[in-house]
Design a binder for these strands. Structure first.
Length: 397
RNA sequence: ACGGUUGUAGUUCAAUGGUAGAAUGUACGGUUGUGGUCCGUGAGACGCGGGUUCGAUUCCCGCCUUCCGUCCCA
């Protein structure tokens, strides 16, 4: 027997589950298009070097899924979409607003809501300003609203963080690690973070004494009004102002950093109020020296939280020995945009059973009686009611 | 990646050192113009490889897979 096992961390989706997923993807895609973002498709496989990017020392690079082809080329599966923007954003009229929904791969440990192949949704604007960032937050906030997921949108700014670190005399080579630790304030207590920071093994300059660490943590967990004195708070102010115009409520979270080192301005994170996890994250960064901003969200946690049902087929036609007429009627319904299942070979009992299992709302009988009358018997599968309807009425089902 | 854990029909579960039962789903029939009820019949499984044994689905080892932790996370 041929082995049909799944590879670790890969899954099949069928039936109702697949319908729900397709529906969610449709909602997301339509929302992106409403805001004028255009779709893009890129290869799932790239050269390993390209996938790893400019920061090959980044710890996360070890999660890249590696492959080799017959020509001995070192390849890897994409683990996100942003790095491919470098290629596709060339020669595009700015701002280049694109979205992408597709599978990405990470060779990492799996756990609930996390596999090695998963769908990610990315929306980016290349050639952007803070005003565009507000629009990106609006498009994403709208998606969560449409999916019935209640979220909290947090914002911060990397320039502001940096300004504070400079004013606190944190050596440049220590800043990245310090930022990474501060980012953990969403899960750890201020004391835990301060303890980790003082005497951290990854701080080359090592000048962060206990007092300094505690002071730093205190600053970053402070009230918003205490940040007004910093120059780059103005960017927070502007982003908030435009978010308000777009009708998006955001909250300033000074220690929010997002792990990625390439962010150079605003950073954002969307939190699930229900699960207390990050659902989406993004910020502003450079694509070949052009300012860009974007946000990405994983499909799987959203699928867990979304309160939507997949679209069922609306109508099922049963041919009772009148295949030609049944096919014609199905053609008309489909032409009118009504999704239709056509069953030519099943007995009526089996066909109704089939309609039940597929959740079809209405069943239309096409038999000798109907053909003679020029009207078709339409059965409502919920109520069991039947009535004869002409074609014009049927097309308005 | 590490530590533990799991693996029997599509799915959920049994039993057993002498090659396996059910429920549900599925196919067909009772019911070639009426379903979500019932009845009957059929198909359908011991993750893979090695070892111990007269004989292994059962015991042992390795791999794979499952789930839970830890590390890491763009």
């Amino acid at each position: 027997m041929v082995k049909t096992d799944k590879v670790k961390g890969f899954q099949d989706f069928v039936g109702d589950e697949a319908l729900k997923r397709a529906k969610i993807m449709k909602i997301i895609q339509e929302q992106f298009e409403l805001y004028g973002f255009e779709p893009a498709e890129t290869p799932t496989m790239e050269f390993e070097e390209f996938v790893k990017g400019d920061n090959p020392n980044d710890e996360a690079v070890r999660d890249v899924f590696k492959l080799e082809d017959r020509g001995g080329r070192k390849l890897a599966l994409r683990y996100e979409f942003t790095f491919q923007l470098k290629r596709i954003a060339k020669n595009q009229k700015l701002p280049y607003k694109r979205f992408q929904i597709g599978v990405v791969f990470r060779d990492e440990p799996i756990r609930e809501g996390r596999s090695r192949q998963f769908i990610q949704c990315d929306v980016d604007s290349v050639g952007s300003s803070i005003k565009d960032e507000a629009e990106i937050l609006a498009v994403v906030d709208g998606i969560f609203k449409k999916l019935g997921i209640s979220v909290k949108v947090y914002i911060n700014n990397r320039k502001l963080i940096n300004e504070i670190l400079v004013s606190e005399n944190i050596a440049e080579r220590d800043r990245e690690q310090v930022i990474r630790e501060l980012d953990k304030l969403d899960k750890l207590s201020p004391k835990e973070v301060a303890d980790t920071l003082s005497g951290h093994k990854n701080l080359p300059a090592g000048n962060l004494k206990k007092i300094g660490a505690e002071k730093l943590v205190k600053i970053f967990t402070g009230k918003e009004k205490d940040f007004v004195k910093y120059n780059f708070y103005k960017e927070i102010k502007e982003l908030k102002k435009y978010c308000k115009s777009y009708g998006v409520s955001v909250e300033f979270r000074p220690f929010l950093a997002r792990g990625l080192s390439y962010y150079n301005g605003s950073v954002f994170e969307v939190w699930s109020k229900e699960l207390k996890v990050s659902l989406a994250g993004g910020g502003s960064y450079l694509v070949d020296k052009v300012q860009a901003s974007g946000i990405a969200f994983g499909f799987e946690p959203i699928n867990l939280l979304a309160k939507v049902d997949g679209d069922k087929t609306k109508v099922q036609i049963i041919s009772v020995g009148q295949d030609k007429e049944a096919i014609e009627l199905a053609g008309k319904l489909r032409g009118a945009g009504i999704s239709t299942i056509l069953l030519l070979d099943k007995s009526i009992g089996k066909a109704l059973d089939y309609a039940n299992s597929k959740g079809v709302a209405k069943v239309i009988f096409v038999g000798a009686e109907e053909v003679k009358k020029g009207k078709f018997k339409v059965k409502d599968m919920k109520t069991g009611k039947e009535e004869f309807l002409g074609e014009d009425k049927i097309l308005k089902i």
